[in-house]
Design a protein around this nucleic acid. Sequence first.
DNA 1: TATGAATGAGTTTTCATTCAT
DNA 2: GATGAATGAAAACTCATTCAT
Lengths: 175, 175, 175, 175
Amino acid sequence: MEAAAELIAEVGWGRVTTRAVAAKAGLPHGAVSYHFAGKQQLLVEAALKAFERAFQPEEFARLDSIEEVIAGFETELRSVSGSPAIAALMLEAMREAERDAELRDRLGTLLRRARQAVADVARRDEGLSGLSASPETIAALLIAVGDGLLLHCLIDPELDVGAQFAALHAMLAGA
Amino acid sequence: MEAAAELIAEVGWGRVTTRAVAAKAGLPHGAVSYHFAGKQQLLVEAALKAFERAFQPEEFARLDSIEEVIAGFETELRSVSGSPAIAALMLEAMREAERDAELRDRLGTLLRRARQAVADVARRDEGLSGLSASPETIAALLIAVGDGLLLHCLIDPELDVGAQFAALHAMLAGA
Amino acid sequence: MEAAAELIAEVGWGRVTTRAVAAKAGLPHGAVSYHFAGKQQLLVEAALKAFERAFQPEEFARLDSIEEVIAGFETELRSVSGSPAIAALMLEAMREAERDAELRDRLGTLLRRARQAVADVARRDEGLSGLSASPETIAALLIAVGDGLLLHCLIDPELDVGAQFAALHAMLAGA
Amino acid sequence: MEAAAELIAEVGWGRVTTRAVAAKAGLPHGAVSYHFAGKQQLLVEAALKAFERAFQPEEFARLDSIEEVIAGFETELRSVSGSPAIAALMLEAMREAERDAELRDRLGTLLRRARQAVADVARRDEGLSGLSASPETIAALLIAVGDGLLLHCLIDPELDVGAQFAALHAMLAGA
DNA sequence: TATGAATGAGTTTTCATTCAT
DNA sequence: GATGAATGAAAACTCATTCAT
């Protein structure tokens, strides 16, 4: 499953082949079909497992301000520049979710949990009291911003992430 | 090429087949190989042509404030909910650009032009003078926000786009 | 072996899988290879065992006229309409016998015994004295008729078996 | 399609492989899937085409007595001993028809036409006036007898077909 | 002795590309 | 120029058999 997750990020969901997964994992071809009901099921399981490992809601529970969340995003994004595995995987999964109902449901649950975790931080953050938007909306917007920056970083690795995040900080601080 | 662009959005870049393109266009199978050097070249041309038609820099030249740009994004995003063709195509192309050098270059140029157009608006917008970030950074951030919201809208069509944009407005207004 | 015999009738000799046999029998996969030298041997044994259970020569020993044999065929054929297991199995085995030498020999022995049993009845039946054919020939012909009707009944369950047998009775009575 | 029909007879319906068909026909593997919607469709078409070529209703139109029909069966059966292609193919198709609805329908139509042709002969045959059975029933019975003998001849090539047919003649003559 | 995980040869099918017409 | 029949490489998947436990 690790091999599958890496391959999704490397070559794209629709171009992962069971042979490549098996080769990467050092297993024979038949092993993939033997252990999973089919290629799609393998990819779905592999992607979701990777997300669950990468996203730990507890980490957010300790945070008290949105600034810290954004700082976390930035750290993650910078680390991602080197190994874009999880980020690319997330984007591939989001695209695939439009076509695969099960993936859509399970990924949706994961995203809702993430939004909830960020919304809880927003609720605790007194600096946001000036904003009329609900904590849930702020959380959704922030995660969308994070994903958008991720997307652009993947295309253009020379993008100045630091400046972007500084601007985001400034906008929130002003509010 | 229109048929190809639609199919990329529908089934994903890696799963478009030349036969499906020909069938959708009402052309004979052989026509695809006859008119293009190969499948990849067809898809690249089709995607870029679709972007060039959808993104008209002149539209931004008439705008005087970032608020208007955001309003434009919102209108576009709402219209996208019905036919996600261009949005999905853009995401597919962004993912593919990581692997295809020519697509990366040409798509990069397009994005840079878009960023420049938005940066020009930001430069004209006096309401942003309070932000220390450069107009280019603000433009890049805004486009990333737009793409991030697009991505999330495609997965979860019930997402309240209006609330998100209202929050974005508020954040910018505060700044 | 019962599971194997049923599966031959259901899906056809060439499409039985060892996993399906094991699953139907409620046994682990490995058990099939463990207890039999291979799939083919299992199927041969299973088919022959089923025939030996279904065909009891003693039943014919009690009969005194070919009419009774035919009546027995008819009864069997009618009962077969509901559960075509043994009939279908017989046809599958007959086809397979053309390719498998061991099955051919053992099935041939079984059929010869059946012909002999019917021939013995024919010998005892005084009503057949008018026919110049030997009891063995009459027996072989009758069994062929039975199998032919069986074959057609399996394809076309609405075939009027009663009328067919009545005509057969009439033909023999006339002779 | 000729290669497919021969292979069904040789190795059995369920064990025909598209590779073997292609090899026998001297074509590349891909050709089979290219020209037919799938293996099953190829086999169905091949079998039915072979039957339509082998069974010509016009041949029966010229006959005036059932004796001639039986003589025709015998000739066919004897010729079959050398190349059991059509006979074996028919049996395979009959078995398969139990599982494939389309084959069942189309084969059923063919068999009904054959029964009708034989029934027409039976109607013209004045020697059968002594039998109370309808011409249709007599036809169905005769064809079943023919198929049954065919089946047994395939298993046991040493079976004395001549004696069987002589007995059949005698039975009908008596009636 | 018995199990079931693992293997890999073999199956059907797809499809970009070629090329004779 | 344009077509579509043909090719063959590669894909996903099946399954009898093996063998460590």
